[in-house]
Amino acid sequence: MTEEIIIAGFGGQGVLSMGKILAYSGIMQNQEVSWMPSYGPEMRGGTANVTVILSDDRISSPYLKIFDTAIILNQQSMDKFEESVKPGGVLIYDPNGISHHPTRTDINIYQIEGTKLAAEMGNKKIFNMVILGGFLKVKPIVQLENVIEGLKKSLSERYHHLIPLNTEAISTGMNKITPFKVEKQVFS
C-alpha cells in the first residue's frame, strides 16, 4: 500500500499540522513516511501545502506531480491541484470560500464543511482535525489510536489538554463527510 497525498490551503488552517499528524501516524504503524511542506514567506494567510506519502515499501522520491488524494481548503488550491489527482483518486474539500466547485467526473469527490463544524464545536482551530476525520473515513489508511499518538507528538505538551477535543473533531469529521456529485452542465 502506498498513499500519496497533497493537503493545500491557506497558512493558519493547520495544513502542515495535518500532514505532520498523518506522517507521525504512519510512523506509529511502521510505515515508510515522507512529509514535504511548501509555503510562502507570509505563512499565515498565504498559501501552504504539504505532500505526505505513507507506504509499506521504500519511498523513492518525496517529490510528486500527481496524487492519490488531494485535500483542498481554498479556491487557489482547488485551481492548482484539482487536475493533479490521479484518475480514480479522491478529492476532499471544504466548500467554505470555494466559488468554483470541482468538475472532474473521473475521480471521487467528497465535501466536508470543516469551517462550519469547527465553529459549531466552539473552536475554529480544530478545523483541520474535522477535515482529517473526513479523510480517514474515506481512506482509513492509519488507525485512530495512531492518529492520537501523532497528535501527542505534534502538539506541544501545553496543548495536550486539547487532545480530547481534537479526537471529538476527528470523529465529527468521520460522521459528516459526504460524497459530492458533479452536475453536468447543459448548454442550450
Rank of each mutant, 00 (worst) to 15 (best):
A169G: 09
T115R: 08
I126W: 01
A23R: 02
I98T: 13
F180R: 03
N175H: 12
T69R: 00
I21C: 12
A119L: 15
H160Q: 09
K125P: 09
K137H: 07
T105R: 11
N123D: 15
I92T: 04
N30W: 05
K153D: 02
A8W: 03
M1C: 13
P41D: 13
T51G: 01
N30P: 01
R104D: 10
L136W: 01
F180A: 03
V85P: 00
I170E: 02
G97D: 15
T2V: 07
K125Y: 11
P41A: 15
K86S: 06
N166D: 07
S61P: 10
V130K: 05
E145N: 15
E157K: 14
I27G: 14
E82T: 11
P95A: 10
I98M: 15
F180C: 02
Q143P: 12
I21K: 06
E3K: 10
R158D: 04
D68I: 06
H100E: 13
Q13Y: 07
A70S: 06
N123T: 12
S60M: 12
G11E: 07
L132H: 03
I170P: 01
F10E: 10
E113P: 10
N74L: 06
V142N: 00
N175T: 08
G134S: 06
N146H: 13
V52M: 00
G134Y: 03
V90C: 03
I112L: 06
K116E: 07
Q31Y: 03
V50A: 08
P62C: 09
I6S: 04
M18Y: 03
E113V: 06
E168Q: 14
M78C: 04
Y110N: 02
P102L: 03
I7Q: 00
M28C: 12
H160W: 14
I72A: 04
I98W: 14
L132I: 05
N49Y: 06
G45Y: 14
V50T: 06
G11K: 11
E157S: 15
M18P: 00
